[in-house]
Write a protein that binds this DNA or RNA. Structure first.
Lengths: 217, 217
DNA sequence: TTATTTTATTAGGTAAGCCTAATTTTTATT
DNA sequence: AATAAAAATTAGGCTTACCTAATAAAATAA
């Protein structure tokens, strides 16, 4: 049984793979987890040893079949718990993530399936992400340009189309990462800019060009 | 915020205090947790440093006000989750304990209260134990040990003092649940065992130890 | 009271999962 | 190709929460 840390690494590698931004490098994982790359290399070796991933300096990290299974399982639990927190306990969508991050690590062979049944087999979590089925099937996520999102909708950064330092620097400055949740507040026709809210915090105005370089789902 | 381990120590000290078997010694705690007494002394010093307990070789361990609060909070979460698992997810009462042991450590300032509300403010968990209220009040248990019941008296299983899988498995085998009606047929002085009748059915001989792990009213 | 057993404690060690500092390797720029 | 920058890696350390082995202190039995 993977440890809590191992599960978090698997989950992170899984979402980086989903985001499809090419090679999953040490630094990408380190950044996503807020860890030091040194810690990451240790863990990748451990996960390799357990045949949950393959890792190669050149090719980066990649989940094995076994690792994918484990990761999807965690994602399933995460999204089911998010649904529970939102639908049954009345939490707002911005609150559910952190609690589900804890709940997803609870181990029991029947828990996810019972919860799924109790919730009426929901298709999507409160953020609109598909909930993996018990058999491991995940509905494909269609990615959209941030620019095309309608106001008041919540979304999650899935990928970026620009890899220039300038662009990434700006993302960093705004604390936007893969997985960061955004809400489109307003679309300003004049000047074609967008007002967005980043995670739970600050509202920021971004340009059309910028919003067309970010893919969300 | 106490760590997972710290929380487990607080909870253990709390239940040893409830059980009221005198001094809460190092070895008693070690036994309850399945740890080495050496590990226990380390942790007790740590908890003392945090003013969650007092510890003295002679007097044993004792929760401070702050520690009691923390312990009751964990017990509240544990019993609420047990109720959820039993009532909403349909788990059997022997299965809920282990899962609740994991769920009780999920941290969120509102979670317990929201869960409580969702469950309709239940008074007792599936094992018949009172669920502490949000203000920290715990209903007193006016229950008697099955062992102390006089022959020929009828009683009803109200709670169990042992939540080990082994014990609960045995209860299951005897078809004893919360609410099951028992009649004490005979108390055998030699060997200190008890002959009881379960519901209207079979007569069974049980050990002193077993009869001291069942609370009836 | 002395011997024995139980309980508490010290000393030192381990694994997991992090870290900083320094170094090597790879990639990008001039 | 030479140089600079970025990424990967090694070496060594830290904290938490455990452990064993050895010793001291206290309680119990002879």
């Amino acid at each position: 049984m993977p440890s809590l840390s191992e599960e978090n690494y698997l989950k992170t590698i899984y979402s980086l793979a989903q985001a499809d931004t090419g090679k999953i490098s040490l630094t990408a994982i380190a950044e996503a987890l807020g860890n030091n790359p040194v810690s990451v290399i240790d863990m990748l070796r451990k996960l390799s040893g357990k045949k949950l991933i393959s890792y190669d300096k050149k090719k980066g990290a990649k989940l094995s079949e076994k690792g994918t299974k484990a990761a999807v399982d965690i994602v399933r639990k995460h999204r089911l718990w998010e649904s529970f927190l939102s639908e049954k306990l009345g939490y707002g969508w911005e609150a559910v993530h952190d609690i589900a991050e804890q709940l997803e690590h609870v181990h029991d062979s029947e828990l996810a399936d019972r919860l799924d049944k109790f919730l009426g087999y929901p298709e999507f979590d409160p953020h609109g992400d598909p909930i993996p089925k018990a058999n491991g099937k995940v509905a494909p996520t269609s990615k959209t340009l941030l620019f095309d999102i309608h106001p008041d909708k919540n979304c999650r950064v899935a990928a970026v189309k620009d890899t220039s330092g300038e662009f990434l620097q700006y993302l960093k400055k705004l604390s936007i990462n893969i997985g960061t949740k955004l809400k489109v507040i307003e679309k300003i026709s004049f000047g074609e800019s967008l007002v967005i809210q980043i995670e739970k915090g600050k509202k920021t105005t971004i340009s059309k060009k910028f919003s067309q370089s970010i893919l969300v789902d």
